[in-house]
Design a protein around this nucleic acid. Structure first.
Lengths: 195, 195
DNA sequence: GAATAGATAGAACGATCAGTCTAATATGTC
DNA sequence: GACATATTAGACTGATCGTTCTATCTATTC
């Protein structure tokens, strides 16, 4: 990938993260990236496409970081805990400003499918991944249901960590996740007994 | 309150909900409200103040609706369940487009305290209210901790309900809330036994 | 050294933005 | 009927927006 294109994505990511998508104009991105106007439009047909590229890049970066972090653990339960721990480490980052996908979804809604699709794809991937882990602990239908709950916990924790400047929310959210999983395991086993 | 001011707030609320704050211009609001330009600026010094007024109004509307809905129930547990049920009914609304406070927070961040403060105040009020209910079921320190978890569940459910167009998430979130509360009650009682 | 491709600065585009000003009109009160 | 207040339509300002265009420059490659 062209180094200029790279600089544009990096500068745009930083500016969008700090100020949002709409308030950041092309000029500001060009100045920060140290790139000429036409260079941007040679690489991206429009601002929307730059936004999409930023989100795509973020998607890959997060997934790579998450996988590396999670694969260092052994059991499914440790992997799930690692996901929450990864979030806490992220919340503690000085540049943490919420989830860029959520913010894109909040700003653009479904009016711009090119943009909102990345956010939804991220959610679905996360949920499927979590469900896979849970399948070693729970029957399949329970795993998918609980996965959607853990996603809710992660999304809610991300939002409230930003609103309250409280990274420790992630650990408490993991405690809640454990309670949900425990209850589900208990319900499943009693079902087996009753049979 | 002046009927013109009222129309402005209503039209702005609708437009902001559907398209976000930045993309909606003053002209669009004026056209929808059927109000002249200077009338707006007689009532609100700036667009930011109109946004704040919209959020304030929303805050009062939601709180009134929630309280009316919850006060129809008897026990603390029923009240908590009612909060989740209220959210599900909200998610089923055709005009549901996520939480306006969250979206304001996502769009403006903390760069505009006048705006973000309303969102954070909403969160804190909700959490304190939930904590009060929980205090009849749990010791105080546990009540406040669990309250922050229920807030996470509500916030996460609101976000995912919008992203996936799935109102039933609220019911599942309540199931998760019950699991968290049950576990906490169990832990508390064993503590008592051990003493 | 010629040719090609990519990047440069900067002017210019038309559109839209929030906000101001003016002058006329409507409404209700004394 | 006079006065005060609220509202009106619409022109206008200065700024900013995303985008296009041109003309110059730099680097690589044959």
């Amino acid at each position: 990938m062209s180094p200029k294109k790279e600089q544009l994505i990096l500068a745009a990511t930083d500016l969008f993260s700090r100020h949002g998508f709409h308030p950041v104009g092309i000029d500001r991105i060009l100045a920060d990236a140290g790139v000429a106007r036409m260079t941007l439009y040679n690489h991206f047909p429009s601002k929307d496409d730059l936004i999409t590229a930023v989100l795509d890049r973020r998607y890959e970066g997060i997934m790579a970081s998450l996988h590396a972090f999670v694969e260092a653990t052994a059991t499914a339960r440790e992997q799930l805990e690692a996901i929450f721990a990864w979030h806490e480490a992220w919340f503690e980052t000085p540049e943490f400003s919420g989830c860029l996908f959520e913010r894109a979804l909040a700003e653009f809604g479904s009016d711009y499918p090119k943009i909102s699709d990345v956010a939804i794809r991220y959610k679905k991937t996360m949920m499927a991944w979590i469900a896979d882990m849970l399948k070693t602990l729970l029957p399949e239908h329970a795993a998918t249901r609980v996965a959607s709950l853990l996603l809710i916990l992660l999304d809610g924790a991300t939002i409230d960590a930003r609103a309250f400047h409280d990274p420790t929310i992630a650990t408490r959210a993991w405690g809640a996740a454990e309670a949900i999983i425990e209850q589900e395991i208990r319900l499943t086993s009693t079902n087996f007994v009753r049979r």
